[in-house]
């Protein structure tokens, strides 16, 4: 018996039903996928593991396809310097005792600090000045001038060979604030251990006596009042990464 031919009205009703079923299925799959993104246990304040995985994937794409020492953050004339907000006092809320401050270095492969440096050691390195747009992860930015030694020069002088490590970790003297950096970003020519800001010695609020200025990263990586620098293959802990932000946080 030949199948009865559908009228156009029956045919479109059949197609509409079928399309709605496909859409419903796709929507259900999408919702399930979104649920999976948000599933899994994360530490208090951290993002779910699947989203952490996405950030890791994006990091690999950027490091493979985009990052280069030749890509420089834009620099500005001194006339464009703005008034930068002092955001965040974790690790620097106790008053600084300049006489007691020193910098510990843990070279690649060592487990203990190999030495204690003073500001004179840092100042002995070539001084570089840069006026860059300091970018907060919140979205604002302020043109700011910094001066200091390149972290690349510092590493070559005080921790030679440590360039082979994958990462650099830095901590405040009280270990309350800490950042982790990938080595290519740490050795970028614009990455400074800064001791001057806007033509004056760095003040306490902005991280005296020595802070990191890394224009290829958001402000959260630009740690103030550095007390310890460690070269390691293990990804160093990172204060804001533990609170949900991208560990890489590259610009």
């Amino acid at each position: 018996m030949p199948a009865e031919k559908l009228t156009p009205e029956q045919e479109i009703a059949r197609r509409t039903r079928r399309s709605f079923m496909v859409m419903g299925g796709a929507a259900a799959a999408g919702l399930a996928g979104f649920g999976m993104l948000n599933a899994g246990s994360a530490a208090e304040g951290d993002i779910p593991p699947a989203l952490r995985g996405v950030l890791g994937f994006n990091e690999r794409v950027v490091r493979t396809a985009l990052f280069s020492d030749n890509h420089l953050a834009k620099t500005y004339p001194a006339s464009e310097i703005g008034k930068i907000k002092a955001n965040g006092d974790v690790g620097i809320d106790e008053p600084l005792d300049p006489a007691a401050w020193h910098l510990e270095i843990v070279p690649f492969g060592a487990s203990q600090p190999a030495g204690k440096l003073t500001m004179d050691d840092v100042r002995a390195l070539p001084r570089f000045e840069e006026t860059i747009d300091f970018k907060c992860v919140e979205g604002w930015s302020t043109v700011t001038q910094f001066a200091g030694a390149r972290l690349a020069d510092f590493t070559a002088k005080f921790a030679p060979g440590s360039e082979k490590a994958d990462c650099v970790g830095m901590r405040t003297p009280d270990e309350e604030y800490y950042v982790g950096l990938d080595m290519p970003s740490a050795l970028h020519p614009q990455t400074l251990l800064a001791y001057e800001m806007n033509g004056a010695p760095l003040n306490d609020q902005h991280g005296a006596p020595l802070r990191l200025v890394i224009p290829v990263k958001y402000g959260i990586k630009n740690i103030k009042r550095i007390g310890r620098i460690e070269y390691t293959n293990k990804r160093p802990d990172d204060y804001w990464a533990e609170r949900g932000y991208d560990w890489y946080a590259g610009l």
């Binding site: 989203l51 950030l55 992860v137 991208d246």
Partner: peptide, 11 residues
């Protein structure tokens, strides 16, 4: 919810 928003946005 900045951190969560950024992770979603970049996915």
């Amino acid at each position: 919810k900045l951190a969560y928003g950024m992770a979603l946005h970049f996915l």
